[in-house]
Design a protein around this nucleic acid. Sequence first.
DNA 1: TATGAATGAGGGTTCATTCAT
DNA 2: CATGAATGAACCCTCATTCAT
Lengths: 201, 201, 201, 201
Amino acid sequence: MKKTTYNKKQKIEKLLDASFELFTQQGINKTSISDIVEKAEVAKGTFYLYFKDKYDIKNKLIAHKTNQLFVRAYEALNETDIEMFEDKIIFIMNYVLDELNKNKGLVMFVHKDLSWAVFRKALESPIENSGVNFKEVYEEMLEKSKVKYKDSAIMLFLIIEIVGACGYSAIIYEDPVPFEKLKNHLENSVRSIMKQYEIKD
Amino acid sequence: MKKTTYNKKQKIEKLLDASFELFTQQGINKTSISDIVEKAEVAKGTFYLYFKDKYDIKNKLIAHKTNQLFVRAYEALNETDIEMFEDKIIFIMNYVLDELNKNKGLVMFVHKDLSWAVFRKALESPIENSGVNFKEVYEEMLEKSKVKYKDSAIMLFLIIEIVGACGYSAIIYEDPVPFEKLKNHLENSVRSIMKQYEIKD
Amino acid sequence: MKKTTYNKKQKIEKLLDASFELFTQQGINKTSISDIVEKAEVAKGTFYLYFKDKYDIKNKLIAHKTNQLFVRAYEALNETDIEMFEDKIIFIMNYVLDELNKNKGLVMFVHKDLSWAVFRKALESPIENSGVNFKEVYEEMLEKSKVKYKDSAIMLFLIIEIVGACGYSAIIYEDPVPFEKLKNHLENSVRSIMKQYEIKD
Amino acid sequence: MKKTTYNKKQKIEKLLDASFELFTQQGINKTSISDIVEKAEVAKGTFYLYFKDKYDIKNKLIAHKTNQLFVRAYEALNETDIEMFEDKIIFIMNYVLDELNKNKGLVMFVHKDLSWAVFRKALESPIENSGVNFKEVYEEMLEKSKVKYKDSAIMLFLIIEIVGACGYSAIIYEDPVPFEKLKNHLENSVRSIMKQYEIKD
DNA sequence: TATGAATGAGGGTTCATTCAT
DNA sequence: CATGAATGAACCCTCATTCAT
């Protein structure tokens, strides 16, 4: 790789890292572009070379971070010998919740974007340095499953929303239920939701 | 009531109304205090007599509007002869969803505050010109119910989160499922969640 | 007048004065709003209380300054006992040219606006603290004149353009003819132009 | 010609063309060097190899374009059999006005540089790929003329200024007189100005 | 010669907040 | 209580210019 190209990539990386840190620490509203470039140690103009504005870099980060999270969850899943589709979903749910719980900044950041609307795009965008994205992974898991499900997209949506929304509350506020207890409640609720979508022959 | 006190109340009212309209129309980030006082037709300084800042007035509005919404739902419920607790919850859910669907600005506004954390405070605060609040109403309904529920607070939390989060997505984006269809899915999911919390003797 | 109103007027006045000085000294392109408010000794925000941008204040200054100039010329004319319309025009022309020659900054400033397009608006706008504007004055002079003119508006246009354009060149560059000599040439040319528009009965 | 030299010429040409197009389309103030190099498809640094700044390229363009215009007018004149000096001047005037009217961008661009000061330099600079310039052409025409003129430089100055200034107003604003009508008025005025400078023996 | 990534000063503009009236 | 003119810090963003390649 040419040296200039390398430098360029490095600047972008630095900007992404600095933004992420600031967004998770102090929120996007209170983070100015001046803050970002100062932390990234690049000139102000450089920011505008690669990003349109604060929200542009935010979206890129969201896509990046969420996809990364799900891929890591999927990789961890592959290390296990879980076979049932329902159990796989619960595993992923717990993995993601644990990761978020370890990194509260990340929770604050993806917060209300850990919801379907923005999320979907992230999930459908190809994961860096790999040919897959979570959507495909999900569909592949469905195919392999012995138990079949109707309206599987809506089912996923319901799961993501309830897990995302409740997870946020428990992780950030420990209210109305502490994190570890929430996981049990969510597991039961998610299983009961999934049950409804099973196709019985 | 003294005339000055009356005037004072009127100014506050005007500020609240103007804020609400602007917040729902253009979002809180893009609404300035100048915008608010201009629309409310009061002087800039007057704003600071009654509110600390934009976020202060926002919180007061959230509490006000959400409580109002649930009280209206409850009043509507009383006009019916629904007896079962589960059916009552579904009724309220549908009522609230319909109201939000009619007023998308309101959805945008309460958006991610239609979640437990902020919401709880709203629900516990007494409703203007009435002695009740939604929390009490909920507990009263529980007491009257023949079917008993364990962990009823957590159950309510799960319901509110899933309804709030999914409702938002369906109302604003019609994605991944249009509003009317979502209601069926949610009804089934909520019922199945509630089933788990039933105490069987 | 209330004290606040007085203060307000004073700030506007200061901004106008500072702008004029800077525009004439260093040109409008090289004058920033920062420069203006610094010279006017007001806060930056104050500028935006009264003007939209640099060009807004420029237009207001042009209208103000040009009208002022013509009114002074007209007042000077009234001190004389010149009777003929043609002689009056020449008098005004010479008066304006002399004034511009005394104040080269003003010439630079009104420069390319000392032309019909922008000028017309200035001439038609009422002069501060007086009921008249130059357009009316011109028409009144025409009416009183024994000699009548056809296409008098176009005639005025031709005169203003030739005087403005040539005056600029002579005053700023002394080229191709020094100022005092130019006046003779212009006088002859203007008279010959006017002759063509005389209505002979 | 060496290949590098050829490339160089081509880059300069491209920069000039791009600048001209942008200046006439959106004005010089709103045109940035980034715009120019992007349109010219050369690198930013390349601009600075050949031009000092925006105003440098502007001046070169003005000289180029105006001279070109007058040369084309002169060439057209030579296609006719007009003999009288006065008629020749009127012919050139009309030719230039028509050209400008066809290309309003050009009018905006040369605008107030279609006046003596800047213009003179353009007229005196040799026309590319030809040994002549307009100044020489004018003097040659004078010599051949039967009618002789005093102060011929000043006379030319007056003509250029009145035609340039009035032409601008009529072409851009159609005010106070539409283009075609203006030409008649200008013709009469220019002829009457010229009459004064005739030397009668 | 030619490049174009990087710079950072400085432009315009907004707006929460104050305070004399 | 109520006002609204004034503030000025802080924002976003542009762009002429440089310089290592």
